[in-house]
Design a protein around this nucleic acid. Structure first.
Lengths: 338, 338
DNA sequence: ATGTCTCATGTTATCGTTATCACAAGCACT
DNA sequence: AGTGCTTGTGATAACGATAACATGAGACAT
């Protein structure tokens, strides 16, 4: 009764055709007569046959996997990138193999090694900072590599990202133009989150260019920096630098947390404290007052990465021609910085 | 120069051992002398060898994959379940293969079929409503099946979930006890989101038991129901049923959206309008006022599912003994319903 | 010295599909 | 009638690892 699952050979036998014909019937455009194909698919359904990718993967040396690493799944921005990436790739018949690094490049190295064993057709990684060994693993893998969410100085392969430094610069310019002078930055530790670190560096550089004090820096420890951390940072900011006029936060989530802290303390936003976020999250658009933020095009990064990978795998670019797709972050001024 | 990647056979040749010994060196606890293993791993690193799972999968008939379907990745609750699930499974050497159904059971069927081709060791699906063919595919797969986030009447295999109906009942009881009578429910369409539909049904049943009017129902269309939908629903509620005292929302996200709409309209929460959410999201704990909600243990569902799968695969339960792990949703009363 | 056991390693065959080559039949066109 | 082309199908071997069994060397007890 409980015999082992049917294979293509079983279907072939039951219909008196060769296994090869059965195999072809499961491929889209291969040469099988309409009649034969239908008979095969019908027999397959009746026998409860399930196509075995593991065998196909080995023989054809193709897995239709694309490996993807993100720092955390619990982040609306990365989730949006992954969603669009998954959608785009599925149109090309590719499936995502996802892993989290927890904002740790050593974890990332382990993850990359593990993912490469599955023989993906391409790999997408978030960020541009990696261990030396990770870089080597990626280079040796001889599959397309795409770094996202940053513009690394020494890219490993393709890049789909934007300049975090530039983005914050625009934010600082906006605040200064609007009339704010005593401006703080609230983010996480530099060590683990390169995007956060770049944003902080961008803040410091831009403030200096304006001849302003760039020492109002609040750090909330290791990422992820969420709403709670934002609230706590605002609390700290109000104690340490009570005359601060505006706070730029490393993300909309922490900016929202900061906003709630202001509400609890009856600090008016933006009159007493202006706020800026990052990432154009839903929450920033809907909260009261809505948050000034930077649209970093999280979704578009995913969509363009999917396109890029499809094109590269289709051989649309000459071998070794690495593409760099760069987005220009766009400031969205809202009431939190009037 | 650009010859093909090394295999175990290449390593074996370079060291004068058999491929079998190389294979064993890559397994944890198999019998290889310390000396030989080190030599093999060193040679592997030098040759740039990458273990090929596709071959191992085929020969050993094991993939160490666990397939997981969720309605959407852009949902903090499901994301948390997946995170804990991934963490727990990785401890057992298992990797997640994730797919989204977009709240559509036909999409789910397609997804399940696609995932089963990868020969996962187990499959976790969100919800208890599936197409007939999906049920058949799952039953035939002869791997552990876990349905989560609900308590299906006719489970396919194991279950890790809670009663959405019961959860909302607790919320209604709380509101009634606190003194509210004219209570509304705001959620999505019944068709696509079984959990949302159950919550609505639970609301109607509980209200009737209290002898209260259960017709204040606002529907926001197809899921996902996010903050925007919540704000719009509150807008509609205030127009259609202006004397409503309290609104129970299908999730914290929509409850927060509703809260912002109240803020924009200077409707005081909870004095003019009390609010209840669902899911115990971060945002409900930190917003002002914080939201009364239901802790549905999203993370725990993932963690317990991971344990369950490990145990089942380890043969800790007799063959065919299906487990049901049921959480009791817990009401968290906060200021939004004082 | 003989038997028994453990440990480290080798040999052989195989997992289920598909790349590749081969070929027959049908058709169009010279 | 012959040539070339397309279409549908089959035979064979191979992808790269490992399950299953076999073997040889040494340790130890009898």
């Amino acid at each position: 009764m409980n015999r082992k699952p049917p294979t293509m050979a079983d279907i072939a036998k039951s219909l008196g055709v060769s296994p090869m014909t059965v195999s072809r019937a499961f491929k889209r455009d291969s040469a099988v007569s309409q009649e034969t194909r239908e008979a095969i698919l019908l027999a397959a359904e009746e026998l409860g046959y399930v196509f075995d990718s593991t065998a196909a993967n080995l023989r054809s040396q193709k897995t239709d996997f694309v490996a993807v690493t993100i720092p955390s799944i619990n982040n609306a921005n990365f989730a949006e990138t992954v969603r669009q990436l998954a959608d785009g790739l599925s149109r090309a018949g590719l499936q995502i193999l996802l892993g989290y690094t927890n904002y740790d490049i050593h974890e990332e190295e382990r993850l990359i090694e593990q993912l490469l064993r599955r023989k993906p057709q391409a790999i997408v990684i978030t960020g541009g900072q990696h261990t030396e060994r990770a870089r080597k693993l990626l280079s040796n893998a001889s599959i397309p590599v795409v770094e996202t969410w940053e513009l690394p100085e020494k890219p490993i392969g393709h890049v789909v990202g934007f300049s975090n430094t530039q983005a914050i610069r625009e934010m600082v310019d906006h605040f200064v133009e609007t009339g704010y002078r005593r401006i703080a930055f609230m983010g996480g530790d530099a060590a683990n989150d390169t995007r956060g670190a770049e944003r902080r560096a961008g803040f410091v550089a831009a403030m200096r260019e304006h001849g302003l004090d760039a020492t109002r820096l609040i750090s909330s420890g290791a990422p992820p920096i969420g709403m709670r951390e934002g609230a706590k940072a605002m609390s700290e900011l109000l104690e340490r630098f009570p005359d601060t006029q505006a706070a730029i936060c490393v993300s909309d989530l922490s900016a929202f947390g900061a906003l709630t802290e202001c509400q609890r303390r009856n600090v008016r936003v933006p009159e007493d404290m202006a706020l800026g976020g990052f990432g154009n999250y839903d929450i920033g658009a809907i909260c009261v007052p809505p948050l000034t933020t930077i649209n970093a095009f999280a979704g578009d990064i995913g969509a363009r990465t999917a396109e890029l990978i499809s094109d590269v795998l289709d051989g649309k670019f000459p071998q070794g021609a690495m593409q760099t797709i760069s987005f220009n972050p766009v400031l969205i001024a809202r009431e939190s910085s009037r």
